[in-house]
Design a protein around this nucleic acid. Structure first.
Lengths: 201, 201, 201, 201
DNA sequence: AATGAATGAGCGTTCATTCAT
DNA sequence: AATGAATGAACGCTCATTCAT
């Protein structure tokens, strides 16, 4: 008796192709990652790739969708916990930052995607649409941290999310020594700023 | 009497190749930019390219060197003015930010280079060495701004530079709506933070 | 009670595959017609193709057989009518010519097959064997026309058939404006020639 | 001292590529002839092909142009001789027919091209334009033969040319036993027909 | 009988690089 | 110094074919 249906098996193949693609795009970049090496990295031949993706660009779209979905799931989970506790402490964000910090793969991949988006209008629309939703969740989370400190951010949630992402990805890309500490430093400063609103620089 | 010496002519050829390379790497990325199209974009044939660069990788090194040198020159100039005035006001940085903000080309190119560096150890060493010096100057400038507000940054100059770059490049890459404003917002917060040192979050 | 036996169903599948194959080979040529697109054109997947044909070459053989059989059937029918009437008038041939003229599909397909035959000895033998029999019938028919005009052709029947086919297919392939008229013009000339046997050019 | 200039050498390369292409398209057909095998057949690598042709379709266009030009040259030469003698005897055409008869290559290639034209509108226009001019010359030649027998053809020159080509190519494609004899047989008939204009079939 | 995932050879094409000119 | 023909590896992709279902 077979455990796996055909559909399951194909899903597994696709997951292995995704995994190999992520690994290689991270290592070599999208352009230098060949369909052949993705397939072989996943333990298949080229044909398996084309049974699962229409072409290389389709892989990019599906991979972006997958990664952003996972990101969305993680963010929504964090928000769900927030709803239970009614607040997210800075310590809560700390662990998130630390986790992201280690996740160089995601950072490099996301920058790669943003770079592709900056050069390909079609992909940009696709990427931005997925990113916007994630930014909303991320913005809410950061906003929550502000509120847990008793302040209201004067920047819109989207900006908070973008600043957070810029810092996280930028510092990791620059191989900065303590990205997590520095992100927290900036966040503290932004929260403190709201506590002392009398700034007239 | 010849107007241009041979060396001058070659230098001009090289400059045109650099210009074409910058334009195309920005538009298409390093991998998708071919030597042929760079050469033709500069008004020459492939041969001119190989008379000026050992190979495609050599172009990357020389281009990085060139761009980072120019950046260094700009930063040193800013510092020189600083030495005259003994300080750089936030307004001084403002104009720098505004200028960078418009300079999407440089940002995309620099991110491309950092991405390449993240995947190529040899290039990473080359890039980091050039970047380190620039970070020092940039750090000094930002430090100066802090001092002009009467405070001493608690972060090392290098971190200040890296945070500044992360914000600038990250926000531009994300196509954020007011990158300049947001960068300033963060900077003000960091300066304010130093004014109210009693943070114990 | 089942309407169709299994054999009937399979035969229907095969007919649909034949129809799709004819359409696509005509449109794109044998080499550029893929098994996949034939199958999908027939409303099936690749699997149906390989259940009905050993491989692509086998389709070619069976399709040739099918088309030549149908041609043979048509020719024999025409001959049968001839046997009743004891003669075929030129007008009888006219309608045949007119019908062929419109049947560009058959012409293109037949030329395709002859071209393949000219390059593939195995297929050539297969094709020639089928064609020879059809040429005999066609030759008899044309001979009949001569006889209906009271003359005996001096060319062997096979040559008459080959000339007739060469004209029909060649003129259609060249997109000549009135292929039917021209074919008749030539036929009349050949018949007239037999009426005036004193040619000494 | 070098005998061959660079341009000459490239021309020679191109000629060898043409020769190899002709040989292989004749043997295997256009679709089954690969750029690689053409190049290797000519003694070069793939790169040489792409230095001489934009792509495979460009080869088809240039090859068609070349072959039709040569054909045009031959036909014009035959007409020039005609102008000297003021007439072309049937014997003159005989030798032409005999030569064509042996030139199976040209026939197969031309049918291949007509088949491609029947499926590709762009190529059809290109081919037809070249063919039309050749048909004019061929029509004139055949007309001349009629005149040398003291008659005026009742078919337009273009039709005469098309009938002649249909017979030549069609009989050769069918592997008919004496194509030359049969073509002459038909031509004689057509000429005789003009001598006995009272046909009322 | 029919499906369609997977194979793997092969194709057209691109492109960094070499080198004779 | 610059040209551009030629090389050959690599790429994205197609497709006939196999086979477990």
């Amino acid at each position: 008796m077979q455990r796996k249906t055909r559909t399951q098996q194909q899903q597994e193949t696709k997951e292995m192709l995704f995994a190999a693609a992520i690994e290689q795009i991270m290592k070599f970049g999208f352009d230098k990652t060949s369909i052949n090496s993705i397939s072989e990295g996943a333990g298949f031949s080229k044909g398996a790739f084309f049974s699962n993706f229409k072409n290389k660009y389709d892989l990019l779209l599906q991979l972006t969708d997958k990664l952003k979905s996972e990101e969305r799931f993680n963010l929504k989970s964090a928000l769900a916990i927030n709803n239970e506790n009614n607040t997210i402490s800075i310590n809560g964000l700390n662990s998130y930052v630390d986790q992201i910090k280690n996740n160089t793969i995601c950072v490099i991949l996301d920058i790669e995607m943003q770079l592709i988006a900056s050069r390909d209008q079609n992909f940009k629309q696709y990427y931005d649409q997925l990113q916007r939703e994630n930014n909303e969740s991320l913005g809410e989370i950061i906003c929550s941290v502000f509120k847990s400190e008793g302040v209201q951010p004067s920047l819109p949630n989207e900006s908070l999310a973008q600043i957070f992402i810029a810092l996280t990805e930028g510092l990791i890309l620059q191989n900065a020594s303590n990205p997590g500490e520095q992100i927290k430093h900036v966040l503290y400063a932004l929260i403190e700023k709201e506590k002392n609103p009398i700034q007239t620089l």
